[in-house]
C-alpha cells in the first residue's frame, strides 16, 4: 500500500480544513472495509486518510425521530441487524445487511459507508431505496438533505461535494400494512458479491409497489408501480407479469466477470416476481 497521511479530526472545523488542504486527494475513513481494498489495489491515490471516527457527533447510533429512525453515519451493520426497531419496521433492509460480507465485515462496516461508495451493487441500496431513505449531508457551508435516489449519480460517484460528508440516514416508517422483502442472486451460497439484488416494498392501500434494483444499472435503481396491478391479489397473472416486465425494462445491466447481461436481465425479472410474492405473503401474515 502506498503511504499517506493519517488524520483523526475531533471537530468538524478540523475536518473542513483538512478537506480544503487536501483538495480531493483524500479519502474519508469510517469502517474502511471497502476503502482499504481500494487503497491496496492502488485504485485511489489519496494522499491523506481522514478518519471520521473521532467526530463524536457521528456516533449517534440509531435514534428515534418523528415517524422513523435516524441511523448515524458510524452505525455498524452488525449492530443494525440486531436492532429490534430495524427488524420490525425495515425487515428488507435487515435482510440486505445480513448479506453484506461476513460477520467480521459487518462488525466494522457502516451502513453509510455502504452507500457512500455509490457502488451499483451495494447490498443495502435497493432496500434503502424502497424505504425512501433520505441522506442528511453536512458540509462547511451547512446542511442539506437528499433522497437516496438523488444521492447516487454514477458508478462510484455520489452527490456529495468534495467538502461534505454524510451525517446520518433517515428512514420513515412505511405506511402499514405493508410487506417487504430482499432477494439476491450470487455465485455461491457463502458470502459473495451480488449478481443481481432486488428489494420490494408493497403498500396495498396505496396500490403501490416499490422495487430497489441492484447491480443492473450504473446506479442502484428505484422503480415504482402505483397502478395497483401488483398489489391486488385478484389481478390477472398476465397483467402482473406485464407490469413487472415494464418495471424491469428500466434496468440496463452489463456483462462482467460475475454474469452476462442476458442472465442479469432474466434474473432481475425472476427475482422481482419472487420478491413481490414473498412481500405479499408477509403482508398476509402480518394481517392475520
Amino acid at each position: 500500500m502506498s503511504t499517506f497521511q493519517y488524520y483523526r479530526p475531533q471537530r468538524f472545523e478540523e475536518l473542513w480544513q483538512l478537506m480544503v488542504e487536501y483538495n480531493n486527494a483524500f479519502s474519508l475513513l469510517a469502517g474502511g472495509t471497502d476503502l482499504l481494498v481500494r487503497l491496496r489495489k492502488g485504485r485511489t491515490n489519496s494522499r491523506a486518510l481522514i478518519d471520521i471516527k473521532g467526530l463524536q457527533e457521528l456516533h449517534g447510533g440509531i435514534q428515534e425521530i418523528n415517524g422513523g429512525l435516524r441511523v448515524g453515519a458510524l452505525a455498524l451493520m452488525g449492530d443494525l441487524v440486531d436492532d429490534a426497531r430495524m427488524q420490525q419496521h425495515f425487515p428488507a433492509l435487515v435482510e440486505a445487511m445480513k448479506w453484506v460480507g461476513s460477520t467480521q465485515i459487518r462488525n466494522r462496516a457502516t451502513l453509510t459507508g455502504n452507500i457512500c461508495n455509490a457502488s451499483p451493487a451495494a447490498d443495502t441500496a435497493p432496500a434503502l431505496l424502497v424505504y425512501g431513505a433520505r441522506v442528511n449531508i453536512l458540509g462547511s457551508l451547512g446542511e442539506r438533505t437528499l433522497s437516496l435516489e438523488d444521492f447516487f449519480l454514477a458508478p462510484g460517484r455520489s452527490a456529495l461535494n468534495p467538502h461534505e460528508i454524510v451525517q446520518s440516514i433517515d428512514l420513515s416508517y412505511p405506511e402499514t400494512p405493508n410487506g417487504s422483502s430482499f432477494l439476491r442472486l450470487t455465485r455461491r451460497r457463502g458470502f459473495d458479491l451480488a449478481t443481481v439484488s432486488v428489494a420490494c416494498l408493497l403498500i396495498p392501500e396505496a396500490g403501490r409497489i416499490r422495487f430497489g434494483l441492484g447491480a443492473v444499472a450504473p446506479t442502484p435503481l428505484l422503480v415504482i408501480d402505483g397502478s395497483g396491478v401488483l398489489t391486488q391479489t385478484e389481478s390477472a397473472q398476465v397483467a402482473k407479469e406485464s407490469a413487472l416486465a415494464k418495471l424491469a425494462e428500466r434496468a440496463t445491466p452489463i456483462s462482467d466477470v460475475r454474469a452476462s447481461k442476458e442472465y442479469r436481465q432474466a434474473m432481475l425479472f425472476a427475482l422481482m416476481s419472487k420478491a413481490q410474492h414473498i412481500a405479499s405473503e408477509r403482508l398476509n401474515q402480518s394481517r392475520s
Binding site: Y6, R8, L29, G32, T33, L36, V37, L49, D51, K53, G78, S102, T103, Q104, I105, N107, R108
Partner: peptide, 15 residues
C-alpha cells in the same frame, strides 16, 4: 477488536 470479530487486514493499526 474490543470483543468483536474483525478481519485485521482491513483495519489500519493507527485507527
Amino acid at each position: 477488536l474490543n470483543g468483536r470479530s474483525v478481519t485485521s487486514c482491513l483495519i489500519l493499526a493507527v485507527e
